[in-house]
Amino acid sequence: MHVVVILFLVLIVGSLASALVFLLRDQGKGRRTVHALALRVALSIALFVLLMAGLASGLITQRLGS
């Protein structure tokens, strides 16, 4: 489960970086920036749902105090 969460975080950061590159190259005239940011939002929502499902099913446990 840890690997999946880290993979999602890498994909989210990669999508954000590609949106920045598209913004700089297209100078706000293309739609690639919007698509990259929409993908980032979709990945973030999917990660949130995955984490909540993991907590509900017991795959992820909470540690109280370290």
Results as ranks from 00 to 15, higher is better:
residue 1 M to K: 05
residue 1 M to R: 07
residue 1 M to I: 03
residue 2 H to M: 15
residue 2 H to G: 15
residue 4 V to G: 02
residue 4 V to D: 05
residue 4 V to L: 00
residue 5 V to R: 03
residue 5 V to H: 04
residue 5 V to Y: 04
residue 6 I to S: 10
residue 6 I to G: 03
residue 7 L to E: 12
residue 8 F to T: 09
residue 9 L to T: 01
residue 10 V to N: 13
residue 10 V to D: 07
residue 11 L to M: 12
residue 11 L to A: 14
residue 12 I to G: 03
residue 12 I to L: 03
residue 13 V to A: 05
residue 13 V to T: 05
residue 14 G to Q: 07
residue 14 G to S: 05
residue 15 S to H: 07
residue 15 S to G: 13
residue 16 L to R: 14
residue 17 A to H: 09
residue 18 S to F: 11
residue 18 S to V: 10
residue 19 A to V: 02
residue 20 L to N: 10
residue 21 V to L: 09
residue 21 V to S: 08
residue 21 V to D: 01
residue 22 F to V: 11
residue 22 F to S: 09
residue 23 L to Q: 03
residue 23 L to K: 02
residue 24 L to Y: 10
residue 25 R to H: 13
residue 27 Q to H: 11
residue 28 G to P: 09
residue 28 G to E: 05
residue 29 K to W: 00
residue 29 K to H: 00
residue 29 K to S: 06
residue 30 G to V: 03
residue 31 R to G: 01
residue 31 R to M: 04
residue 32 R to H: 06
residue 32 R to M: 09
residue 32 R to D: 11
residue 32 R to Q: 11
residue 33 T to Q: 05
residue 34 V to L: 14
residue 36 A to H: 12
residue 36 A to P: 05
residue 36 A to M: 06
residue 36 A to I: 06
residue 37 L to G: 06
residue 37 L to S: 06
residue 37 L to E: 07
residue 38 A to M: 15
residue 38 A to F: 08
residue 39 L to C: 15
residue 40 R to I: 00
residue 40 R to W: 13
residue 40 R to A: 08
residue 41 V to T: 15
residue 41 V to K: 15
residue 41 V to R: 15
residue 41 V to P: 07
residue 42 A to H: 13
residue 42 A to M: 08
residue 42 A to N: 14
residue 43 L to M: 15
residue 44 S to C: 08
residue 44 S to Y: 10
residue 44 S to H: 11
residue 45 I to V: 12
residue 45 I to P: 05
residue 45 I to K: 07
residue 47 L to K: 01
residue 47 L to R: 00
residue 48 F to G: 00
residue 48 F to C: 02
residue 48 F to A: 04
residue 48 F to V: 04
residue 49 V to D: 02
residue 49 V to Q: 01
residue 51 L to W: 07
residue 53 A to P: 02
residue 53 A to T: 08
residue 53 A to V: 13
residue 54 G to L: 00
residue 54 G to Q: 02
residue 54 G to P: 01
residue 56 A to L: 13
residue 57 S to W: 13
residue 57 S to D: 11
residue 58 G to W: 13
residue 58 G to A: 06
residue 58 G to E: 05
residue 59 L to I: 03
residue 59 L to A: 08
residue 60 I to N: 00
residue 61 T to K: 14
residue 61 T to D: 08
residue 61 T to V: 14
residue 63 R to C: 05
residue 65 G to S: 10
residue 66 S to E: 12
residue 66 S to C: 10
